[in-house]
Design a protein around this nucleic acid. Sequence first.
DNA 1: ACACTAATTTAGGCAAGACTAAACTTTATT
DNA 2: AATAAAGTTTAGTCTTGCCTAAATTAGTGT
Lengths: 223, 223
Amino acid sequence: MKNQLTHAIEDYLKAIYALSVEGEAASTTALAAELNIAPASVTGMLKRLAETTPPLVEYRKHRGANLTPDGERAALEVIRHHRLLETYLHQSLGFPWEDVHEEACRLEHVISEAFEERIDAVLGHPTHDPHGDPIPSPNLVMPQEASIPLSTLRPPQVTTIQRVNANDADLLRYLDEKSLVPGSKLEVRAFSPFDGNLTISIEGAEMVVGPAITHHIFVEEED
Amino acid sequence: MKNQLTHAIEDYLKAIYALSVEGEAASTTALAAELNIAPASVTGMLKRLAETTPPLVEYRKHRGANLTPDGERAALEVIRHHRLLETYLHQSLGFPWEDVHEEACRLEHVISEAFEERIDAVLGHPTHDPHGDPIPSPNLVMPQEASIPLSTLRPPQVTTIQRVNANDADLLRYLDEKSLVPGSKLEVRAFSPFDGNLTISIEGAEMVVGPAITHHIFVEEED
DNA sequence: ACACTAATTTAGGCAAGACTAAACTTTATT
DNA sequence: AATAAAGTTTAGTCTTGCCTAAATTAGTGT
């Protein structure tokens, strides 16, 4: 008997999950920014989420919110939907990389477990979405993976892109064009300490990328 | 600049479309029954729909509602989504016949035009959904088709099932089992004037079906 | 310890969409 | 034509989720 969560609530849970790294509580303002909602509205919703049965978040005034185990399970369910959908839209329906996020954001709240299972099967039980994010398992365990921002690498270094952390469609389109996608191998050739630019070589081509880009690209952790 | 319709509004438009056959207005109670909503709530919504810009329905007190051209276009868009989705869920994702309706009801409000186009293409631009209902064209013209209830046939007669008009999952599962699906050929062998039962032969097997079933099955019109 | 700022909460409102109960039309029946 | 039944509308209420403006709390530097 899982009670039916609204779209709005699912979005809150997803946002709290995303913002509470390392067990740190997600702040009201950070949530407001993430959700494009006024901070006051977030306060109101957090109170409600803390008083549902079962409670989905743990909330302390002025101290932000954490997910309860129930809340986390619900969040992971939505994230699993989201990432499976992104993968499906891209692989099976030929959606461009940069468009899958928005579409998945709407569909994730609406698909049934049967739908989830079908696309999971059709895709062959994928482990990562097109952006390289891990897909929680059917029993809702989030694989833990270590990766570091490309911006932290110093030459000389060879590595592989693991994950691209961006939702902006224009940026994603650009990255795709330059093969800056999960799985691509690249070599870090030079670093400019003044502006943080890296000179990298990828797919045989050499290019210079600034922090606005390298910050969003995550690569294998070093040995 | 198409204004964003809510989920609820799309359901109203769909229901009004379904109930206003032959230009007759859909009554408040009929809509309430169709939508599982109290009649009073329907009245309120109809008033709102008649006063939006542009108006989506034409509403006269105690006289029910009709769709305006704008409303009809919106309704057809949703119906196109619904029927394409049903077809897709069944053909491409292997959903059982009886489950596609419910899933499509939720997805229809949420998919983008890009999604619509992709599944339409993948399916090869289908003209009918799994229940035999025609799919409106991309420019939102509803194909007009003539078919008559199986219940009106009298032996001896050979015909083909065109359309199955039912949403109840149990009934659909039963019909599927007995091959009472669009495309099946059948022969009407006998008619009982007392209870309206028909004896038919389908796929080599003979069976007796009552009005509760024959009423939902539509076959080719006679020459 | 004090004051200033940034973050947060409270209070009060609003729109969408639904409900019930009561009042009122329309239609059907006699 | 009178009246009962059926269908519809009105009035008033509720919940969800959002908003703004004002009040409060926490955190920071002096």
